[in-house]
Design a protein around this nucleic acid. Structure first.
Lengths: 142, 142
DNA sequence: TTTCGAATTGAAAACCATTCGCAATTGCCC
DNA sequence: GGGCAATTGCGAATGGTTTTCAATTCGAAA
């Protein structure tokens, strides 16, 4: 991992008064090391850490994400008690839903452009917009 | 339960070629008996049936909701990939999801403009796009 | 370097919405 | 009314996420 990312991550933790352990710095670097906002699940962050060779146990990822939330570094988005996302910034998150098989996968967000949204009802504000793109297997063009 | 609701429910099923069993009529009546649109989860519908004394097993509620979807009577709305709601309004329209309470309601479709979408992966094509707008209670401006 | 509370770990357990297995029941057609 | 496939119901199983636990390791302050 790049030194600058580690430094960014470490600063981010120290600023929030979170003890910068090796695991936390690893995760922090993944989250904000390059200055981009991220939208992760515990699982995806766990895989990302493992993928770059800085393995961190899943339990630690959960502990750490919770600690970051408590420190105000992240925001948790709970989906009805069952699944959580952690955001450095909430934004639109598209998913592909494969009708053939019922699987759900992340979709790239770059090409999603929402040019207009209904107004939020009185007393509410829009937290995020979830877009599910339903896919069907293409009929092989004959 | 009112006779008219039962009749409405039965008609709704017959129109779609779904065999009107006692359990299905019970659920159908709860869903569209009064002509209003509904957004339910399997659990909430299960409770509603039990609450009026027409108990239906939870497994049957799931089976029935799926059968209704396949018959085109309902539309399934997935919130963030982890929870399913069923909407009696089968027209294509966006939804509001109230984080505070987990309720799902219809959103007006006129103001929703999607100007760009991710490309469908190889071998697949886009069947439809579901939009769920997550709402949170607005922090009352001082 | 020593020390102690905090952090980490892997495994197991808890959780939950949903589905499955299968025997019993029901609806529908003749 | 009889037959048969569809439907139902219960409980157990599933799949996936999150939490707990006890033991170990670590960080940082003295």
């Amino acid at each position: 991992m790049l030194q600058t990312k580690i430094e960014n991550g470490t600063r981010w933790l120290e600023k929030a008064g979170v003890r910068p352990t090796r695991q936390r710095v690893t995760l922090a670097s993944l989250l904000i090391g390059d200055g981009q906002h991220r939208h992760v699940t515990a699982e995806s962050l766990f895989e990302a850490a493992k993928g770059q060779g800085d393995a961190v146990s899943l339990a630690t990822v959960y502990n750490t994400l919770r600690a970051f939330c408590e420190a105000g570094l992240l925001q948790e988005v709970t989906v009805d008690g069952s699944k959580s996302y952690f955001d450095t910034n909430t934004h639109d998150h598209p998913h592909f839903y494969w009708e053939d098989g019922g699987k759900l996968t992340d979709a790239p967000s770059e090409q999603l452009i929402i040019a207009g949204l209904p107004d939020a009802p009185e007393g509410a504000e829009i937290a995020s917009v979830d877009v599910v793109i339903r896919l069907r297997r293409k009929a092989e063009a004959g």
